[in-house]
C-alpha cells in the first residue's frame, strides 16, 4: 500500500533532507505542506523543526498548524516530531527567554549547563553536535530492528531532561540524561535527526511508515 506522508512546512528551514530520507525509507507520496486538508488526508505526518523555538512555535500557530496537528492527533494519525518539532510539542521551553509551546506533552525544555562537563571532568561542548548513543528505555515499534545504544545524529543546545517526562522511550547521556525520544499514543518524537542518522535513522523512518500509531 502506498503511504502518503505530509511533512508540515511552516517556513522554518529546509525540509528537503526529511523528504529525501522518507522517500529512501520507502514512503510513496511525500507532500511538504502547511495545508490543513492535505495534512489531515495523509496517512502519517512528520513535524520537523530547526532554529529558534520562539519563531517555530509562532509560525506554526500563525499558519494554524497547531489546530491541524491537534485534530490529526485526535484522529489517531501517526505523527513523528523531529528536533525542534519534538521540543515544540512540550509544554514549555526556556529558550528565547521562555516560550509556551504546544503542550501536547508535559515537561520543560532546558539549556545544557554553562561550562558543561562530564562525570570525568572533561569539557562537553554545546551545541551537543554529533553522533550520540541512544538507550531505549521502553519498547516501541519504532525501535524494531534497531540495536539498543545505537548511534543517532544530534544537534541542539536545549534538551528535555529525561526526568521531566513520563513519556520517554529513549535517553541519551551527555553529562546530563536527556530525552532522545518520547512517545504517547500516536505521537513519537525524537531529539535526534533520523533523516541524518544514516542506516539507523532510515530504519526508524521505515518503522514509522509501518506504524499503526499504537504503542
Amino acid at each position: 500500500m502506498t503511504q502518503t506522508v505530509a511533512v508540515i512546512d511552516y517556513g522554518m528551514g529546509n525540509l528537503h533532507s526529511v523528504e529525501s530520507a522518507l522517500r529512501e525509507a520507502g514512503a510513496g507520496d511525500v507532500a511538504v505542506t502547511a495545508d490543513a486538508e492535505a495534512i489531515l488526508a495523509a496517512d502519517r505526518i512528520v513535524f520537523p523543526g530547526v532554529g529558534a523555538i520562539r519563531d517555530c512555535v509562532a509560525e506554526f500557530r500563525r499558519l494554524g498548524c497547531d489546530e491541524t496537528l491537534r485534530l490529526a492527533i485526535e484522529r489517531g494519525i501517526p505523527v513523528l516530531g523531529i528536533c525542534v518539532g519534538m521540543q515544540s510539542l512540550m509544554a514549555r521551553s526556556e529558550e528565547n527567554g521562555g516560550v509556551d509551546c504546544l503542550g501536547f506533552f508535559e515537561g520543560t525544555v532546558t539549556r545544557f549547563p554553562k561550562s558543561h562537563r562530564g562525570a570525568d571532568g572533561s569539557k562537553l561542548k554545546v551545541p551537543h553536535m554529533g553522533w550520540n548513543q541512544v538507550t531505549q528505555t521502553r519498547e516501541h515499534p519504532l525501535w524494531d530492528g534497531i540495536a539498543n545504544n545505537a548511534y543517532f545524529y544530534f544537534v541542539h543546545s536545549y534538551f528535555l531532561p529525561a526526568a521531566e517526562s513520563g513519556c520517554v522511550t529513549a535517553a541519551f547521556d551527555y553529562g546530563v540524561i536527556g530525552s532522545a525520544a518520547i512517545t504517547k499514543e500516536n505521537v513519537f518524537a525524537t531529539q535526534f535527526h533520523p533523516e541524518k542518522s544514516h542506516e539507523n535513522g532510515l530504519k526508524l523512518l521505515a518503522n514509522f511508515l509501518k506504524w499503526d500509531g499504537k504503542c
Binding site: G118, H128, G130, W131, N132, Q133, T135, F154, D173, Y174
Partner: peptide, 8 residues
C-alpha cells in the same frame, strides 16, 4: 553511552 568523535 556517549557522544562519538567525528571523522569528516
Amino acid at each position: 553511552m556517549s557522544l562519538a568523535k567525528r571523522i569528516i
